[in-house]
Amino acid sequence: MLLQLTADQDQLRQSLRVLFDRQAGWERSRSLENDVDRPLLSSMQQAGFLDVASTEGGTLLDAVLVVEEAEAACARAPVAARALVAARLLDSAPLVVGLVDTDPCALTRYAGLCDAYLVLDSGGASYAEAAQVDVTPEPSRWGYPLGRVRVRRAARLGSGTGGRLLAAWQVALAAEMGAAMRRAVDLTATYVTHRTQFGRPIGSYQAVSHALSEAKVATEGTIWMARRAAADPDDTILAAAAATYAADAAGLIVQRTHQVTGAIGITREYGLVASTMRLGVLRSELGGPRRHAIGLAELRWPQP
C-alpha cells in the first residue's frame, strides 16, 4: 500500500496542467456550448494522455488522474469515456467516444458529436459507429451537450463485457464527479475566505465552515474511492460503491457550495456552475444513486 503519487504520476499530472492551462478552462468551455473540444482531445492524444492506461506500465489509475485534471479544467470533451472506459474495453478507439445507456429515460453526453459509442444494455456491451445510431439532441444548460441516442446496429463486444463496461463507466463517473466536486469546493472555500459580512469573513462562522467541511469530506471520499476502484478494475463491488457514494455526495456538494456562495454562485460569469451543473448530469447517469446502490447490494449480497 502506497497512497501517494509516484514520480511518473506526478510528472503526468504536471504535464496535463501545462496543456490544460493553454487549451482548456471555463472560458473556453463556455465558448463551446453545444460542441465538443476536438482540438483539445487531439492534443491529448498526441501527447499520449488518452492512451495512458494501455501504454506499457500504464494503469487505469493513471487514466483516473487524467480524468481528474480534465474535469478540474472544465474540459468540454468526453475524456473519461475515451481514456478510461474505452481503454478498458477496446484495443483501439476513435478520438471522441460516447457512452450510451439504453434505458429509455437515459440521456447521452455529447450525443451526435462522437465518432463512436459504447452501448450498455441488458444483453451486455456493444460498439456502434456514429453512422449506426440516430440522435435527437436535447437543449441543455447542464454543462454538457445532451441527446437521446437510438442504436440501430451495433457490434457485440463479447461475453462479460457488459459488467466490465458498467464497472469502468461507474469508476469514470466517480472520478469525474470527484474532480468537479473538488473544483466547486475549492472555489467556494476561496469565496467564503474573502467574502465579509457582519464584519467577518463568512468562512469564520461555524454554520458556513461546518457545511463546507462536510462537503470537503464527501469530496475526498469520492476522489479516493474512485482511485481505489480504478486500482482494482475487476472488483465490480468497488466500482459500484464508488459510483453510489459519488452520486450521493454530488447532491450534497451542489447544495452546500451554492448555499454558502449565495446569488453570485448561480451566475455564468462566476464559474461555480461550470462544475455544479455538470454534477447534475453525472449523478443521474446510469440511473443515479438509487440504481447504483441497488446494484451494489445485489453484488455484495446475492440471492442465496
Binding site: 497512497l3 475526498e220 481505489r228 446502490a293 441497488i294
Partner: peptide
Amino acid sequence: PFGPCEKELAGRALAYNEVARVLNYAAVQ
C-alpha cells in the same frame, strides 16, 4: 424483506463504509 428499498439502503451503507475505509487508509499514508 430484502427488496429494492432494502437493497438501496444497504448498498448506500456499504458504499459509505468502503469510503470510510479508504479515507482511513489515506490518513495512514
